[in-house]
Simulated scan of single mutants.
Amino acid sequence: MQKNWKNVSSRNAGTLEYTVQEEMELLPFLLKMMAKNSRNSVKSILARGQVTVDGKMSKQHNHLLREGQKVTILKNKSAMNETQLIGITILHEDEDIIVVNKEAGLLTMASKNEKELTVYRQLMEYIKKTEPRNRIFIVHRLDRDTSGVLLFAKSEKVKEALQSKWNTVVKERMYIALVEGVVRKKEATITSWLKESKTFKVYSSPKDNGGQRAITHYKTIQASKQFTLLEVHLETGRKNQIRVHMETIGHPIVGDKKYGSTVNPIKRLGLHAAKLTILHPRTGQLVHYEAAVPRSFFVKST
């Protein structure tokens, strides 16, 4: 027998409210109620925390609904807890991973003795609002002064799956770098061995120095008399790899005093993680996450 689903207007113009007529899991219910939307669109609405059941946010696809419960869909994403995040924009969220765009100046994670605001700390608080037992796990990091795409796992199992097969899972890591001077070679590959000193500075050697082999590919996007904007692809992901390699070719990243920069017209480090392409840990499908390049990177000569 076909159920008569009732759509009740909410007091807030930006919401839709439905009354559950029979026991059903949340995702199938939403797909039925939002038949005009694509499956991916509905899943995104659920993942972003725009759905509440009897006033409590739920992101679980298999959340079991009971007859008489009220399911509310918030159309206005700005109403969600996501707006409380500082220096972070969520690019994608599902039951396995959270992908964010991190602003420059924000640590991925602090040491045990530090209480500084970090991406990890904020995201942990964010997901615990849905379920206090929820946790997130760091998969990889970005330097404090590097902005861009950053990936976290929602379980230790997913984290280990991603990290153990990182070189297979990650299909592309693309950065945008603003460097000093005019890079003569429009396209090239830098290969060297990187080793960290006791003072935590990474040094590059053209020969094996007992460190880690690092490979960086770059090509010019645009250039002026003073600066060059590069598209950089990592074949390996070593600590400070791009920063060290840019210094190695005589074109340090703008604002990077540690590795040879003498100017900083953009008032930040000129490095941005623009794109991450991976095989999704659950589906195995190729997925792309991108963060727009900061406008300040497109500087003009003075």
Score class of each variant (00 low, 15 high):
residue 57 M to T: 11
residue 199 T to S: 13
residue 162 L to E: 01
residue 266 I to W: 08
residue 17 E to T: 14
residue 256 D to K: 02
residue 96 D to M: 13
residue 274 A to K: 13
residue 38 S to H: 02
residue 245 H to A: 01
residue 274 A to T: 07
residue 158 V to D: 06
residue 55 G to N: 10
residue 100 V to T: 12
residue 72 T to M: 13
residue 59 K to E: 07
residue 58 S to M: 13
residue 6 K to R: 13
residue 71 V to L: 07
residue 235 E to M: 11
residue 286 L to K: 11
residue 58 S to Y: 00
residue 93 E to N: 10
residue 18 Y to T: 06
residue 169 V to C: 14
residue 181 G to P: 12
residue 231 E to P: 03
residue 114 E to D: 13
residue 57 M to F: 12
residue 157 K to F: 06
residue 90 I to F: 03
residue 218 Y to W: 05
residue 70 K to W: 01
residue 38 S to C: 05
residue 173 R to F: 10
residue 274 A to N: 09
residue 113 N to K: 12
residue 19 T to A: 04
residue 23 E to V: 14
residue 43 K to P: 09
residue 227 F to S: 09
residue 247 E to R: 11
residue 64 L to T: 14
residue 142 L to M: 07
residue 184 R to M: 09
residue 68 G to S: 02
residue 87 G to L: 08
residue 233 H to L: 14
residue 256 D to S: 04
residue 185 K to A: 12
residue 297 F to M: 09
residue 40 N to R: 01
residue 144 R to M: 10
residue 126 Y to A: 06
residue 220 T to V: 15
residue 67 E to Q: 12
residue 11 R to K: 15
residue 256 D to R: 01
residue 116 E to K: 11
residue 13 A to G: 03
residue 118 T to G: 09
residue 37 N to L: 15
residue 220 T to E: 08
residue 106 L to H: 10
residue 97 I to C: 10
residue 68 G to H: 00
residue 76 N to T: 11
